[in-house]
Amino acid sequence: MTPRPLCNSRLKNCHIGPNLHLHPVSMAWGYFLESKQEPQFAGKCYEGGIITSMHRVTECTIIETSALGSAAFTAMVPWESGHDMNERMRRYARTAHTFALVHDRGAGSVDGEGHVSFSLSRGDTDELREGLRRALRILVAADATEVGTHRSDGLRLRCKGVRDKDLEAFFDEDPQNTPNRRSP
């Protein structure tokens, strides 16, 4: 909403309003079983200090961990059923969240009335997709039992015995090639 007060204050600058960058984000999650053998992974996602870890995967994309409280978690989880929500909340403490953030090259604008116009460029969409793929790969490599995104259909992948081709099919959303895939 910054452009409106700037325009109302009679500032004259051609950069007020255009060149809106939103740095789009796409989130992934991984559920981890309680580890009896590895005490460094004991505990819950909300215990201990806040972990902020960031990894640049391309010139424009980073993957970062996020501290997602239970209220924010429930707001992001796609609704499938009461039973599913109960199960997800029971598993909340052992669910890790990562996100891919893109330094967008495309730009939108905000007019003086606060109307936003923004759409992702093709390059930004590709960056976001690749960042999400890498975030999911990290969770699988870390031994998540199940991974997914916050897609509205609740699509997720069980990781036990998952092979590279299964993971690629999950990324490409090809239901014929993903035997461990679970959808509502």
Rank of each mutant, 00 (worst) to 15 (best):
I50K: 11
P184I: 05
M76L: 03
S121V: 02
S81V: 10
R4L: 10
K36E: 12
A71Q: 12
A93W: 05
N13I: 02
P179G: 07
M1V: 10
V116A: 06
S119C: 15
P24C: 06
C45S: 09
E80K: 14
R134N: 11
E87V: 11
L6G: 02
C159P: 00
M27S: 08
P78T: 09
D104V: 11
A135Y: 01
S152E: 11
Y46M: 04
Y31R: 04
E59A: 03
H103D: 05
A107P: 02
G49Y: 08
I50H: 09
I138C: 13
S183K: 09
E130S: 11
G131H: 03
F171I: 02
R91G: 06
L132W: 07
M89D: 12
G161I: 00
H115W: 09
A135D: 03
V102K: 00
A107Y: 08
G49K: 05
P5V: 07
R56W: 05
R137Y: 14
E87S: 11
D111N: 04
A96W: 02
T65L: 13
P175W: 04
R105I: 09
R4V: 03
H97S: 06
F41Y: 12
Q176C: 11
T95H: 04
R133Y: 13
S109C: 14
L101G: 02
C14S: 15
R4P: 13
G148V: 01
P175M: 13
E168S: 11
D84V: 03
L6M: 12
H21D: 01
G114N: 04
W79N: 10
P184C: 02
C7L: 13
R182L: 07
A71I: 13
S66N: 07
M85I: 14
D124M: 01
L136H: 00
V140C: 09
M27Q: 14
R158K: 03
G48Y: 15
C159Q: 00
I51E: 14
R134D: 08
S119G: 10
G43K: 04
T74I: 10
T65W: 01
R4E: 12
N8C: 13
P184M: 03
H103M: 14
R133A: 11
